[in-house]
Design a binder for these strands. Sequence first.
RNA 1: GGUCCGUUCGUCUAGGGGUUAGGACAGUAGAUUUUCAUUCUACCAACAGGGGUUCGAUUCCCCUACGGACUACCA
Length: 513
Amino acid sequence: MTERKVRVRFAPSPTGPLHIGGVRTALYNFLLARKLGGTMILRIEDTDQNRFVPGAEAYILEALAWCGIVIDEGQGVGGPHAPYKQSERKPMYRAYADQLIADGFAYYAFDTPDELDAMRARLQAAKVPNPQYNSITRAQMRNSLTLPEDEVQALLDAGTPYVIRLKVPRKEEIRFQDMIRGWVVVHSSAVDDKVLMKSDGMPTYHLANIVDDHLMDISHVIRGEEWLPSAPLHVLLYRYLGWESTMPQFAHLPLLLKPDGTGKLSKRDGDRLGFPVFPLEWRGLDADTGEPTLSRGYREDGYLPAALVNFLAFLGWNPGTAQEIFSMDELIQAFSIERVSKSPAKFDQNKAKWFNEHYLRAQPNAELAPYLLGALAEHGIACTQAKAEQIVGVMKERVSFPQDFWQEAKYFFQAPDAYDEQAVAKKWNPQVAAALAAYAEALPGAAAAAAEGLKNLFNQTVEAQGMKPGQVLQMLRMAVTGGAAGPDLFETLAILGPGEVAQRLRTAVATLG
RNA sequence: GGUCCGUUCGUCUAGGGGUUAGGACAGUAGAUUUUCAUUCUACCAACAGGGGUUCGAUUCCCCUACGGACUACCA
């Protein structure tokens, strides 16, 4: 096999927000391109004007960028094969359909929707196992294969609506090699005479896809398994167009399934099970009611892009080693299509969360601080970058998502307005109160405001009161934070500062007696 | 219904004709921690079923079951 430049493409339809499965497809394309020193192309497949959704294209671009999937060429970045949007390439497709007709591989069909329905109904009534427009049934339909030439011409001249269909042979074995599944063989009798050009003059996905992949010199087609059934049709198109020698290699990715039960993961599953199926939040309109809808996004739910990417990469692929944590660069190094599994993967929120916790803990405080700062700003609370970094530093071991910072770290900014009743009932008593009061008095004079100094001072003060630190510690935390659990207590006190701590202790002692 | 694809712990998966079938997530228990969390340790848990081939099959082949995708002038 001759060496060929690796050029892969991700070709979504702008019919709505990009599904998480689509993100994975894009990711695998990107990984392969980078791994092999190739080019990653983004093409927008918007041949169905009825399903166009405003904002979907911008969403796709933003989602990919957020994930760190870089587009080398295509929509949004340009390149030698522009335009990269099929609606803008419309004039290019017709010539290929004409070529197919001229070569006897395609034909005009004038059947109306009603006639097509009637045909299917007839076939179904006759218990034909697979009703379709094909090598047999086309003989009874109104097309350029059955109609006299002059009549066809007359219909064309009269502007009668028509489509162009592929003339699929009656008996032929169509085979191709899939990089993931090996040889796939389909008999042509199972393939119908697919519409290539619609009556509105737009190509269908099938024609546009093959023409563009050829024109853009695509070397590998990596797409979801839902395309496997139409791959034989695509092979036929490459052959009839005379492009078989440069036909890309196919890889059909296993599907992403619902976490429970069975079936393809869908938007509704996310709503039902309470996790996002989209990378970014999406505001759309309900297809049935037209009501505005809001779909959650991984970004808004607090997932770090690196965590999502790592998680997604492992849904259907693994390196064959024990390593599970991979940066994008490491994924590029380790990735190979051969190690993509054949079987579909169920979506596991627990694993996604675990990845996120891992990346959160590995993230530098300086990069985490903005999350807390943002929430503080919303509540009108001022805070320095340095203090926010300190807080997220002690908090990040105990949260799953950045937005948890505010909820968990509230007490750094607001004195508790209530105390954990159970803890109070169990451990609060006059001696404890006295010890805490003594600590409050000693605090302002603390030589060092660092955790270590505060701890020593606490131990000395409590022991001077004739008690053991362990008897008072829990109540110290409770008096200062209101709760019974949290990060290292003296680190917490250090961040708060001796003055604030003393103040809160006095309040607690006054309140609880 | 038809065509195609698939099937290892609850989940993601490794493995592969002879293995105590490995790892991770989740779950459980313990250690550490003033507490919670982290961390560490241990435990729990799988080759869909039936036929072949073979000295031997979870691994190769066939059948069945189950699951999925597709079956539009949607992609």
